[in-house]
């Protein structure tokens, strides 16, 4: 058996620590410390919105508010996180898990007056094998239907119009987007089975909307 490279130090099998290992350069240590500061500050929860403009923070909220006011807006922090792609924020099932089921669909009206319902991929209706890769559609809709993202609605309706453009000489003329929801009841209360529905956007389809690929 060939002997190990004599220039390489050996590490202990128990601890993994290398006794005579080369030292890490100071610039790498500074970078690592800066990186830790950036990702930690950026990941910490925000409190300003929940506290309101006048309330004084107490306890750990002081740390969170100061972090949000002083560290997060720092130019080097933001520049580093955005340009490298290390921006991150963690809120899985927090502060409370979602208590609302929702899905989207659309009513499409054709030139001859015919109406059809377009079902945007809905996880509950998909077979198990299909719903796994399709979850991204649910994630997209979770944000796409929100009142704070109205710029998505017209593009969403255009896409629906293209997908539903399936009859010769009878193109879609109007797309009406609907959100459907149902709240999960707490323990001891009967669960509501029916979904509520609300039409949140109407879009008049233009000829050029249908000319792009499906």
């Amino acid at each position: 058996m060939k002997s190990s490279n004599p220039s390489l130090p050996k590490s202990s099998a128990k601890t993994g620590v290398v006794a005579e290992a080369p030292k890490t350069a100071g610039r790498i240590k500074i970078f690592v410390l800066f990186h830790l500061l950036c990702i930690t500050a950026w990941s910490l929860p925000n409190r300003l919105d929940s506290l309101g403009a006048t309330a004084r923070p107490t306890g750990t909220d002081i740390l969170l508010v100061e972090n949000q006011r002083r560290i997060k807006p720092l130019l080097p922090v933001r520049a580093y996180l955005f340009t490298t792609g290390f921006w991150q924020y963690w809120d899985m099932f927090a502060p409370n898990p979602s208590q609302r089921d929702f899905y989207g669909d659309a009513v499409v009206e054709y030139a001859n007056g015919k109406k059809e319902t377009y079902q945007y991929p809905r996880m509950y209706l998909l077979p198990i094998v299909e719903k796994y890769p399709a979850e991204r559609y649910r994630k997209f809709y979770e944000r796409a239907h929100l009142e704070q993202n109205p710029f998505i609605w017209s593009v969403f309706a255009q896409r629906v119009a293209r997908v539903m453009d399936k009859y010769q000489d009878n193109p879609p003329k109007l797309v009406r987007l609907r959100r459907n929801w149902r709240d999960v009841a707490p323990p001891g209360k009967p669960q509501v089975k029916e979904y509520s529905s609300y039409e949140y956007f109407r879009y008049q389809v233009r000829r050029e909307d249908l000319e792009q690929p499906k």
Binding site: L44, P45, S50, W90, D91, M92, F93, A94, P95
Partner: peptide, 9 residues
Amino acid sequence: TTVWLKTGG
């Protein structure tokens, strides 16, 4: 950070 957020829920 997730646990911290959850303590507010």
